[in-house]
Design a protein around this nucleic acid. Sequence first.
DNA 1: AAAGGCAACGCAAACGTTTTCGTGTTGACA
DNA 2: TGTCAACACGAAAACGTTTGCGTTGCCTTT
Lengths: 346, 346
Amino acid sequence: MKRKVTLKQIAKELDVSISTVSKALRNSKEISEDTRQKVQAFAKLYNYRPNNIALSLKNRKTKTIGIIIPEIVHHFFSKVIRGIELVANKRGYNVIVGLSNESFSKEVINMEMLANGSIDGFILSISKETLQQQDYHHFTETINQGMPIVMFDRVVNEVNCDKVIVDDLKGSKKAVNRLVEKGCETIAIITTKDYVSVGRLRTQGYIEALEENNIKLKGSLILKVDDALVSDDDLEFLEKDIVTLIESNKNIDGIFAVNELYAITAMKVARKLGLRIPDDIQVIGFTDGVLSKHATPSLTTVSQHAQEMGEKSAELLINNLEIEEDEDHYQTVVIETELIERNSTK
Amino acid sequence: MKRKVTLKQIAKELDVSISTVSKALRNSKEISEDTRQKVQAFAKLYNYRPNNIALSLKNRKTKTIGIIIPEIVHHFFSKVIRGIELVANKRGYNVIVGLSNESFSKEVINMEMLANGSIDGFILSISKETLQQQDYHHFTETINQGMPIVMFDRVVNEVNCDKVIVDDLKGSKKAVNRLVEKGCETIAIITTKDYVSVGRLRTQGYIEALEENNIKLKGSLILKVDDALVSDDDLEFLEKDIVTLIESNKNIDGIFAVNELYAITAMKVARKLGLRIPDDIQVIGFTDGVLSKHATPSLTTVSQHAQEMGEKSAELLINNLEIEEDEDHYQTVVIETELIERNSTK
DNA sequence: AAAGGCAACGCAAACGTTTTCGTGTTGACA
DNA sequence: TGTCAACACGAAAACGTTTGCGTTGCCTTT
């Protein structure tokens, strides 16, 4: 087992000083052609690579980005990570990920773990618990210490930083409008409680779209799911709620769901109730997932371009890191949504 | 903006030496009660946190695990990451992820980027291209330099290290046996080319299960998909192949697919050809994904316990890192599969 | 009063780099 | 022969820690 070789060892072996070795390897013209060649040959032979940690300490930057997300087993988030990793790697950065698991304390702990020198900046999406508690001190403190943050998707006005969001309002208006175009007259929405900003915005888009189409809003058509009760493994409550929704509004002919799982579940429930899709009820979801693509019928959906969000977030952060003259002039980038039509609409 | 405070600054402020500060903070009994309190109070006030990079350099360990996987937008891999992150965090480690994107060179580059001091050890799953080229020098060299590796799922005999695998052979035998029990007599398999070890093993399990049930093996029932041609977005080739498979073997009444996507696609194609599931054809897949759970009909599947694989991998690696006396005695942990019955079988 | 002991603290090395600033040697030139 | 520049290299500081050991000053002991 040959351990990693250091400058010191090379220096000792070649009987020169450490600084000579360092300079020789970096092609400094202070060093004679002779010794340079000798050092480089030796370094190559022993496969010398500078120690990243030492470099980080010296340069006071790690070339590493910290990602904090609520959940990784999730298509949207993993696609965002892919996007981040793509441009990060291209620009010489690594990514280190922490999962908050939708918990406030885990979010705080994870950030503290990374904020002490391990990374140069954060890209994150806020956990639900944090959104509920509205406690954002860990974000502001981090920023105050000079560590930049880029928030994506789940953002919050109280924190002043770069943000990358989806145009949730416009996206859901697009979806509802399409349902109207396709002939729907009684359109329900399955959404989340309002503290999740994206849920609130999508609901608002639904409402505005109805108004613009002169369709009267009806409270019983709005199903706000308590997602504390709904996990990937336990859809019972969700299904019951949807059954109630459909049965108490027999004339529903369109459903807009703020995420993939709700949409798929709605289709499943509808079918169980003897309704055909898209003939009796048309359904549109909101998200990027695989479920939509491979469901039967495949689901018409509002794509969020998750990977692009990741890419953009990484670009924002790295630009911020590498260009000094920013003077906390933060921007919010809006990623346009795209309506992908499949077979759950006519 | 108040930058992070260092020992040196505290020392200067309190007019003591750096070492006194350090010792005071670590409750050394060399330091008087008085100064200790003073220092600790000051440190608390300024929210002092030791710099991780400096600690890493000093201790020659980073408390960070490097993960290299072929793809992150994939339920299996993201679940493994979740498992890794869970135990890593519990034991005070961070995880840094690199994506090989199934490419040999990206795998090598990513590993080199991390191997120079950034991490203490690797947990990885080999890219397809690497498996094809059978070039494993980057693994062996890394291990030779004293950096431990744990491989999971896609492993290789040529490299001597800890491994965590699924019992692919047994798992697929379970699946095929179940199909036989449920009355299937003509069972097809949809699998991958043999260089993917898990594909090969699952195919072998299929073959052995048929033998044990005295069912004659028929070459035309084995569909080896060239997954270079199949992406999540382009299932055309796959569908055509499956159409051919079913049409040239009209009596097929059971299909075993080595992954979720193949299984779902098989169901879709079968339905298009007018076959009912599970009445005419029963289908079992292999994997952990969401597709199986939410498909219609939901898919009976061999669960790999991906998260458990991640947890086990992390435990192996960290144990290896923290217990010195290992003496390259590597182990291979086999995670048992579990057959989850849903509605694609009778 | 001298010796010893202990409490409380500082020095310096070490981890592996990069880089600034010497310093010694050579050769050229007046 | 003396001066000076160019050349080639080394010493040391710095990044932020931890820690073994040396160094004070004071108190106890005989």
